[in-house]
């Protein structure tokens, strides 16, 4: 299928990417070409094949490792927030959030 303007808008909104009007057409065309590529998957017979999410589970059963419940993080707020564009009293600032 092709990536029409409506689809591009919907996906761009989901991905929170502003797409300027003058880029809509070219980006849409590139996306359509990409979809042609990935559409090659549609013909593959995968009946009965389980999806493989973690590569090594192809050969052995992999399970999540669990961490003991210990609160021991060293938190240096100043260092952690040094890259923030806007802060006040230890808070990250954003334009007013409406709920």
């Amino acid at each position: 299928m092709s990536f029409d303007a409506t689809t591009l808008h919907r996906i761009a909104s989901l991905a929170r990417l502003d797409v300027p009007a003058d880029q809509l057409a070219s980006l849409g065309a590139e996306m359509s070409a990409l979809l042609v590529l990935v559409d090659q998957l549609q013909g593959v017979d995968t009946k009965g094949v389980a999806p493989l999410a973690h590569p090594l589970s192809a050969v052995s059963e992999m399970a999540l490792r669990l961490r003991p419940d210990e609160a021991c993080a060293e938190i240096n707020r100043e260092a952690n927030m040094q890259n923030a564009p806007m802060t006040e009293n230890g808070l990250f600032l954003v334009p007013k959030v409406l709920d």
């Binding site: 990935v38 998957l41 549609q42 593959v44 995968t46 094949v49 389980a50 999806p51 493989l52 999410a53 590569p55 192809a58 050969v59």
Partner: peptide, 10 residues
């Protein structure tokens, strides 16, 4: 589907 193909490739 891609994850299934991934298993086949593996």
């Amino acid at each position: 589907q891609a994850q299934r193909v991934r298993r086949l490739i593996a």
